[in-house]
Design a protein around this nucleic acid. Structure first.
Length: 249
DNA sequence: GCGACAG
DNA sequence: ATCTTGTCGC
């Protein structure tokens, strides 16, 4: 298994930026956010963008992280789902502590370490990763899904619940309808209606997968819920595990 | 300068 | 993300 290259320079929580100051606006002294941005610029060069269709995977791995209130304790879950039946095949967890604060645009530095640890505990190697967040639809075109895909060199994409970057015209109300998410003149993702008359989700490619495949997979994986089963189950499982962890302490 | 800002 | 009750609807 690959060792994430940035683990050697984990920023300290004591250097967390305050709500009122954005990344890069802090006075000299700490370099955590700047360091992360530098690593981000370096890693993004490795993203593979493509429009070539992939062979439909038999299973996909959904990922999510649940945080403890107040502290930075967290549980990451990796859930393998069978694409044909939407049944959960395997679940793996990692209980740990987030070592980087939440900073818009730098979510990967907070969640990737936890997610990688959970993925490493799976008995079967993932074929495709589905993340809770964005991939190319990111200010630097390198969101969580892209970052994780590059670090593990696996195909990946993201499904976010709310808007972050880009513009779009709301897709039709029918399930399956979708509209381009554009920014600076390029299509960076798709706003997808996974259920009729339900708020759409934001889909974007992460690494080694085309947007069209991401959209069709998202629809195939969304049984009767807004959120596709892999990440939905990862959310449920990580919450459940955090509850258990709390109860026995 | 001001507001917005994945999870 | 998380803090929170009830409530409307399939």
């Amino acid at each position: 298994m690959i060792i994430p290259p940035w683990t050697a320079s984990r920023p300290r929580l004591s250097e967390s930026p305050q709500r009122t100051q954005g990344p890069g606006k802090r006075s000299e002294g700490s370099t955590s956010v700047h360091e992360a941005e530098r690593l981000q610029d370096e890693l993004k060069e490795s993203v593979v963008r493509t429009s070539a269709p992939i062979e439909p995977p038999r299973t996909v791995t959904g990922l999510d992280v649940t945080y403890d209130t107040g502290s930075d304790r967290a549980v990451a879950a990796a859930v393998v789902v069978d694409v044909a039946s939407l049944e959960v095949v395997e679940v793996a967890f990692h209980r740990g502590e987030a070592t980087f604060p939440y900073v818009p645009g730098l979510l990967a530095f907070r969640e990737v370490p936890l997610l990688v640890a959970a993925i490493e505990r799976l008995s079967t190697p993932p074929a495709l990763l589905v993340c809770d967040g964005y991939g190319l639809a990111h200010p630097k075109r390198f969101g969580l899904a892209s970052h994780l895909g590059v670090v593990l060199d696996l195909p990946s994409y993201g499904v976010a619940k709310t808007a972050f970057v880009g513009e779009f015209t709301p897709p039709a109300e029918q399930r399956g309808a979708h509209a381009d998410l554009t920014d600076a003149g390029e299509v960076i993702g798709s706003v997808v209606r996974t259920q009729t008359a339900v708020k759409p989700v934001f889909v974007s490619a992460g690494h080694r997968i085309g947007l069209d495949d991401c959209v069709s997979l998202t629809l195939r994986l969304s049984g009767r819920h807004r959120i596709p089963e892999p990440t939905r189950q990862a959310d449920i499982e990580s919450r459940k595990m955090l509850r258990e962890w709390r109860s026995l302490e």
